[in-house]
């Protein structure tokens, strides 16, 4: 699904990531760890083609991203759901409007029952008409997750999704992500929260990757 072969990423003259090799198999559950500034967000941006690698091969769903046109990349992003730490909402739209944004942006019809089910799944049915600013941190993350899965993507990428949440709310969000994985979705979560990783390991087979010294490594058994 997502395959990196000796990928390097340079920024501002310096190499931020180098020799990254990874193959995300369908239905797998991965964590990506590393200290702040290690390049976790940059790595995720490569995975949904917001950034292009400076060197190496990056293939998404079997296609070389560098050979893809702008419209091809737009189509490709519909197969990847992304949850950001800051959620990336359109603040003038309601929660429901934000959740259906992937459908709106791709000209697909909105089905009331599906939307209601999705909002119910993330526990936000009562907040459908609220503006994002009126939600708590946990509610915002769940709304972002609902938007990420609206198009039924094959891959879910989450960048520090529990960064601003208390432990209970973090567990609630993790449960939703585990449920998605059990439905066959590939999940990759960037986080520095080791407790979250341990909690996930108790529920689902996971693989933990770590970025250290600009390189991707498989994390040890201590996790």
């Amino acid at each position: 699904m997502i395959e990196l072969q000796n990928v390097a990423m340079s920024y501002g003259g310096g190499e931020l990531l180098s020799e990254m090799t990874l193959k995300l198999a369908p239905g797998s559950f991965h964590f990506l760890t590393g200290p702040s500034g290690a390049g976790k967000t940059t790595f995720l941006k490569l995975c949904y083609a917001e950034l292009m690698p400076s060197a190496g091969q990056l293939a998404l769903f079997g296609q070389d991203v560098r050979a893809m046109g702008r419209d091809d990349i737009a189509h490709l992003r519909r197969r990847i759901g992304v949850v950001h730490q800051d959620c990336q909402f359109l603040d003038h739209l309601s929660v429901a409007e934000n959740v259906v944004l992937p459908l709106t942006a791709t000209g697909r019809p909105v089905r009331e029952r599906e939307l209601a089910e999705l909002l119910g799944w993330v526990g936000l049915k009562a907040h459908a008409n609220a503006l994002p600013a009126q939600l708590s941190g946990g509610e915002r993350q769940r709304a972002a997750l609902a938007r990420a899965v609206m198009m039924s993507p094959e891959v879910i990428l989450a960048d520090e999704p529990t960064g601003n949440l208390d432990w209970d709310m973090s567990l609630r969000l993790l449960t939703l992500l585990v449920e998605l994985n059990k439905m066959g979705k590939t999940v990759l979560i960037a986080t520095h929260d080791l407790n979250l990783i341990r909690a996930a390991k108790a529920q689902v087979p996971t693989r933990v990757l770590r970025i250290a010294n600009r390189r991707l490594q498989l994390a040890g058994a201590d996790l």
Partner: peptide, 16 residues
């Protein structure tokens, strides 16, 4: 810019 970024994120094409 933020609106454009979010729309790109959810798979919107330039024409949209």
């Amino acid at each position: 810019g933020q609106v454009i970024r979010v729309l790109r994120l959810v798979g919107a094409r330039d024409l949209f």
